[in-house]
Design a protein around this nucleic acid. Structure first.
Length: 284
DNA sequence: ATCCAGGAGCTTT
DNA sequence: AAAGCTCATGGA
């Protein structure tokens, strides 16, 4: 992979195992849109436009120091080729990795990820995106014509009605209470430095955060690649393809740890994207 | 109309 | 501990 800066743009060439399209629209991020020949989003506190041609990605209006932050955001340093090789013996997973070959697990901002996945519970992607966008427009700091994700401080100051207006439904209370806990000193970023099991458990102390949301935050924002968000789709795959018969969260974790190991979360992203888009073929 | 969506909290067994 | 019920909302 080679990086250069030209005319205020950042150009990444030779990026293997990476597709903007697949990484941005595989259900892990909610604020990106297809625009012109590329993708527009608000991420890391700024508006950004990106294009990709084969293995060349251009990030527009990005200076060097900021470019490094997006290298991390897109998880471009990690050797996905080596990871894929470890799992090549699994026939179904190999199909998943082939279908979703360009997915990288993004490293998003912890608070935004936390609130986004609280909103995701018992909800669908289109509506999740809509709620988040409204939340940003109403309560986020303005970035040109766009809006940043609201801060914990602002969200903590809102009434339930203020948040319900955005379409959040019964989750409005969860959002506000979690924001308050963060304001009162719950250190999300700090969870990067504690063991995975501890991070996951501490996250569930937040209102609206159960096992699934905790796994999402751990995987998509804290860098725990072994975190394994298991929604209805993943459970279908585990049961129908891998013969999982367990009943509770603990049994599922044990099954997943044994089956997929320390990069279970990355594997999960391939399986999720593949299964969600091809279930008709998979289940015959 | 009924069911479902990247589930969690609360109540009852 | 484990299973059951409820929680807004909008689209299929």
């Amino acid at each position: 992979m080679n990086i250069q800066y030209k005319n205020d743009n950042m150009i990444i060439s030779g990026a293997e195992h990476f597709s903007l399209e697949q990484s941005l629209f595989c259900g892990q991020a909610f604020r990106w849109k297809r625009q012109e020949n590329g993708f527009f989003g608000v991420a890391l506190g700024r508006a950004i436009y990106a294009e990709q041609k084969n293995d060349m990605i251009t990030l527009f209006d990005v200076e060097e120091n900021e470019g490094e932050r997006f290298i991390r955001y897109f998880d471009l340093v990690r050797d996905y080729g080596a990871i894929k090789k470890q799992y090549a013996g699994d026939p179904f997973l190999r199909k998943g990795m082939e279908y979703a070959r360009g997915i990288r697990v993004l490293r998003q901002q912890p608070f935004e990820t936390l609130i986004s996945f609280i909103i995701s519970s018992n909800n669908n992607v289109i509506r999740i995106s809509k709620i988040i966008e409204t939340l940003c427009q109403r309560y986020g700091e303005r970035i040109g014509e766009h809006f940043d994700f609201p801060t914990a401080k602002v969200l903590a100051s809102l009434s339930v009605q203020d948040v319900k207006i955005c379409g959040a439904g019964y989750r409005a209370r969860y959002i506000i209470e979690t924001a308050k806990m963060v304001c009162d000193g719950f250190d999300i970023e700090g969870l990067c430095d504690v063991p995975y099991l501890q991070a996951r458990q501490e996250l569930t102390a937040l209102t609206g955060v159960g096992p699934k949301v905790a796994e999402c935050v751990a995987l998509y924002s804290l860098g725990f690649t072994q975190a394994f968000p298991a929604d209805v789709w993943m459970k279908r795959v585990l049961c129908d393809v891998y013969g999982y018969t367990g009943k509770n969260d603990k049994e599922l974790r044990a099954f997943v740890d044994k089956k997929f190991g320390k990069h279970a979360g990355i594997v999960q992203q391939y399986l999720f994207h593949y299964a969600r888009n091809n279930w008709h073929d998979i289940s015959q």
